[in-house]
Every structure is written in C-alpha cells, then in structure tokens.
Design a protein around this nucleic acid. Structure first.
Length: 247
DNA sequence: AGCACA
C-alpha cells in the first residue's frame, strides 16, 4: 500500500502550499486602497507580525489584497480564523499566495527583479551574471521589524496625548479607547471589537478624533476584549489605549 | 473573476 502518499481527497480546490503571504479576494471594491490596507492590518495583526499589506486599484486587481506575515504560522492562523470574515459587508475569501512576496525574497536574498516593468534602464554596466542573485546578503532589513510585541502599557508613547487614569476605573461594560489615529472609522473599530462576544456598539464623536467608546453586554466581555486588543496598532505609531469608561 | 510587488 504505497498509494496514499499524498492526500488529495479534497475533491475540488487543489492545495496551495503554505506561504507567509495570504491572498484575499471578494473584498468590497468600494473601499479606498489606503483605508483598505489599514483595515486589513487592523484585522490581521492579531495573528502575528505583518511585514506588508499590498492592494492595488487597477481593474485586474480590485477586490484583492496580499498580507505578508513574518511567520507562516501567523498566516495559517489568519487563514483559518478569518475565512469568510465579514469585512465591509462581504465575506473575505482567503488563500495562501501562489508565489513568494518580493519583500520576503529580498530578505531571503532570492529576489530577482522582474522584467516586465518599463522603467528607465540603468545606463551602467549590464555585466550582471545570474550568479549574483544570491549575493544580496540575508541581513535583517530594519524596516521589517518595526513593530514587535506589546510593551507594557505605561511604557507606550501615546502621540495623541492619551492618559491612563490616576486611579484605574472600575470595570465597566463600556470601554474607553484612546490614541486612535485620526483616520479611524467606526467601521474599522467595529471589525476589531466585533470579534469578541457580547459586542454591542462603537460610538465615536466627530468633534473628538482619536477616541471611541465600545460597548459590550457585560463587563466580563468588555474585559476580554480590552485584554485582547490592548495596545493594538491600527497604524504603527498608534497603539490603542483601552480603559474602562467612567461610569 | 481577477495572484502583485507604484
């Protein structure tokens, strides 16, 4: 019985090998690229460090995006947990990307620039032989590791001037969220906080950018969400500060 | 539906 070496019992979709990059489609095409990338980052960074998020507005690439994780396990978790996640009212469809992302290849030293682009040629030596595709050196690119694990709350710089209360507020089913980038929308926050059970609503005040209130059914649930999302970065510079709202 | 690297 040497037959069952490869499990192809899965009738339809041929398996795509695991990849640190996930490919997402069925994305609501009305969302602007910039907001889309931020929201994807917001929704996926819970699974691990993200190296890059790519999306394009051309016809051929609308409704699709790539999220590049540092670790393949993060990509797998993201794929498993977020499959069909309602994102801007459409269930996201997630697969592993078919090819290696450039940012990964560059870190690898395996990156070889592709031909098809009509940029201006370098008027220099065209004497490259193909052996030096590997020479690039696998040094860490500091741009990749910009945001690591979560620091302790009191060490986080809050550019928006958010403050921890003097005396911690008593538990409340309503959370007070500070230090949000000003572009944050209620929809973005809803996508984040909806993942935790008991979610009721997000409230933002137009005249007070950078803060939000998020309500849960009870304080157990709000506490879980607070702990899960404490320090969460919608953009790299803005770790959110979550406290219980004052009663 | 569509797998890129502005």
């Amino acid at each position: 019985m040497a037959e069952a070496v490869v499990d192809n019992s899965n009738g339809d979709a041929p398996e795509i090998p695991r990849n640190v990059t996930i490919y997402i489609n069925n994305i609501n095409e009305k969302i602007k690229i910039d907001e889309l990338k931020k929201s994807l980052r917001a929704v996926f960074s819970q699974f691990g460090e993200i190296l890059d998020v790519l999306a394009f507005k051309t016809l051929k690439h609308k409704g699709q995006a790539w999220v590049v994780f540092k670790d393949v396990d993060s990509a797998s978790a993201a794929l498993g947990k977020m499959q069909d996640f309602p994102f801007y009212d459409k269930p996201m469809r997630i697969q592993y990307a078919k090819t290696k992302s450039d940012i990964v290849a560059k870190a690898d030293g395996t990156f070889v620039p592709r031909e098809k682009r009509k940029r201006h040629e370098e008027k220099g030596k065209k004497r490259k032989d193909q052996h030096d595709a590997n020479q690039a050196g696998a040094g860490l690119n500091p741009a990749y590791g910009a945001y690591g694990g979560m620091p302790h709350l009191s060490q986080i710089p809050y550019p928006g001037g958010a403050k921890l209360p003097e005396a911690p507020a008593p538990p409340n089913n309503i959370l007070f969220v500070q230090n949000l980038p000003h572009e944050t929308t209620p929809m973005m926050l809803q996508m984040l906080f909806l993942q935790y059970s008991g979610f009721k609503e997000v409230r933002m005040v137009e005249t007070k950018p950078g803060i939000a209130f998020v309500e849960y059914t009870d304080e157990m649930q709000s506490t879980v969400a607070m702990q899960a999302l404490q320090g969460f970065k919608i953009t790299p510079q803005y770790p959110m500060l979550i406290t219980y709202a004052k009663k």
